[in-house]
């Protein structure tokens, strides 16, 4: 019997992990559920560009998001509200297709996820995405990190690799708080391995059935003088007909 004690001890050490049953994929999926509700919704996204600590420009977007029942990835409709020079422009993300519509030229143009449409932020930064669909996660470690307000958080540290060539980033380092599954921080890398951005989630508030982050702070890793905050407000459930996610519908979006 005494010979079984080492085995039992090791088994007991291993038991907490097994009992939690949290795989990397499950952690990312739970964090996705924290970031966004399951049902269709609309919100206003305010992007503020800071240069050397001073706000320089602000873009306001009205965004409608709805999950594709087949792929479980969000489809997004974006309408530019401010500044006036961009008002009326629209973007559609439906599966792999990204379309940009400009009412001035009446043109719908196919764009890539990399294209910069709103200052520092690539269009993939502002859309509602399900990371567990677009990335394959592995659990690297558990560690303590400071959140945006410098509070220490005990987190899972995950490494996310792009699952397809449409993912905005080749690789993401992702910190998710243990227990709450709140997303805390992320680092985004290019195909060449260069660190592009560091993102902090903050301002957790109750909206649409959960305590969710309402703001993301994006630090440019290439130009240290530049910071973008992405603030989500006015979250509301929204019935979204399937016809809205068609590029021919983009010119009609303004009147909805």
């Amino acid at each position: 019997m005494s010979s079984l004690r080492p085995i039992a001890a090791i088994a007991l050490l291993l038991l907490p992990l097994r009992a939690r049953g949290q795989s990397a994929a499950e952690i990312v999926a739970r964090a996705d559920q924290i970031r966004n509700p399951d049902h269709a919704f609309r919100f206003v996204s305010t992007l503020t560009e800071y240069v050397s600590g001073r706000p320089q420009a602000q873009n306001v977007l009205a965004i409608v998001s709805k999950k594709d029942p087949g792929t479980h990835q969000f489809r997004n409709l974006v309408r530019y509200v401010e500044p006036p020079r961009d008002a009326g422009k629209a973007v559609l993300l439906d599966g792999r297709s990204l379309w940009f519509y400009d009412p001035a030229s009446k043109s719908s143009v196919r764009i890539s996820p990399q294209q910069r449409l709103i200052g520092q932020a690539a269009i993939g930064d502002v859309l509602t995405v399900t990371l567990s669909i677009d990335y394959v996660a592995t659990l690297t470690s558990t560690e303590s990190v400071q959140d945006a307000s410098r509070a220490s958080r005990s987190c899972w540290h995950l490494d996310l690799k792009a699952a397809n060539d449409q993912s905005t980033y080749a690789r993401i380092e992702y910190w998710v708080e243990q227990g709450t599954f709140n997303p805390i921080k992320a680092k985004f890398y290019s195909d060449s391995g260069r660190l592009l951005k560091i993102l902090y989630y903050r301002a957790f508030e109750n909206w649409l059935g959960g305590l969710r982050p309402t703001e993301a702070v994006i630090l440019d890793a290439v130009d240290s003088s530049r910071v973008t905050t992405v603030k989500g407000t006015d979250h509301r459930p929204q019935e979204v007909p399937e016809t809205w996610f068609q590029r021919e519908y983009l010119p009609r979006l303004q009147s909805e």
């Binding site: 305010t46 600590g53 009205a62 240290s224 905050t229 407000t233």
Partner: peptide, 22 residues
Amino acid sequence: QSQPDDELGRIPSESAPASPPP
């Protein structure tokens, strides 16, 4: 594990006020 101070120091302490919903 602490992040470099300059990284957290870049984060605006308060967000610029968001525009009212359209």
